[in-house]
Design a binder for these strands. Sequence first.
DNA 1: GGCGTCACGATATAGTATCACGCGACGTGA
DNA 2: TCACGTCGCGTGATACTATATCGTGACGCC
Lengths: 155, 155
Amino acid sequence: MTATISREQQLNEAEAACLRRGAKLTPLRRQVLDLILASDSPVGAYALLDRLKADRPGAAPPTVYRALDFLLEHGLIHKVERLNAFIGCTESGHGHGHDHDHPHQFLICRRCGATVEIADHAVADAIAAAATRAGFTAVEATVEIEGICARCGTA
Amino acid sequence: MTATISREQQLNEAEAACLRRGAKLTPLRRQVLDLILASDSPVGAYALLDRLKADRPGAAPPTVYRALDFLLEHGLIHKVERLNAFIGCTESGHGHGHDHDHPHQFLICRRCGATVEIADHAVADAIAAAATRAGFTAVEATVEIEGICARCGTA
DNA sequence: GGCGTCACGATATAGTATCACGCGACGTGA
DNA sequence: TCACGTCGCGTGATACTATATCGTGACGCC
Ligand SMILES: [Zn+2]
Ligand SMILES: [Zn+2]
Ligand SMILES: [Zn+2]
Ligand SMILES: [Zn+2]
């Protein structure tokens, strides 16, 4: 399990997921997603724009933001608020496909910048309980944990 | 308990807390903190700047960002990442003073924008446990829960 | 063919945050 | 008393992030 999936394969799965939802993963959107998946840490919109310009000289901020909006909307990527950057969703292709908005948390390494997505039920439950206790109806939660990753901690 | 504290009193407590830490709550910093406490929802840096300009025509972005950095560093305010805005820490004056960096979470109402800080131990513990399980050393966590507040939910 | 929707190009602008330089106030020790 | 370092802040420029607006061509539908 947790076998490494090729980017090509991820893209194809994403395309299929979009079709199931009645949406289209156009070449542009596919390319932006590919650029995000190709990076091992979260990528900023303007970094994407720069890379995009190599292929599409006419690309401008709205070009990339529109693609990002689409990918976010369909759960193919997430935004890391602390970094103003975007990262591919790793919960796809592991059984339950792309939820539109599944509970997730990020572990962000201060030293190397590596950011991994986890989906911890205990955290999600504790958050839901805390919200309820405060008379609050939780819809979604941003959880971004900063610290030192295993690789950097043992080095 | 949880008696309402006047802003004046909060400011004086903040000043005392700074002194204890060997820092100075200068008039400028005090004024920025006052503006933040005066708002019932998180305030953006440029909104603060506009209000600051009434008193200090020369104020510029660095003026407010330097004050914000100081206030953040000393735990007097927090940043709400989802909103790019700042809010006073409500854990002060309730016994344990201003921790430099205490665990906290935000409940952000989608309808009215009201944002309240909570300090739920179960959430903090669940996050610490999840991080440990992943071999990650957590240092601090951003937790921002979006939904509908009690007031808006019952209306 | 007329029409609505959608994806995208293109230009401009808004909103958020930092850099770099300088200067005066203050404390400290020679 | 003076040289020196630190700190707080003024000031101008710049970088970085995100959105508004208008136009146009492709496509599906009737
Ligand atoms: Zn995900
Ligand atoms: Zn690391
Ligand atoms: Zn607080
Ligand atoms: Zn509300």
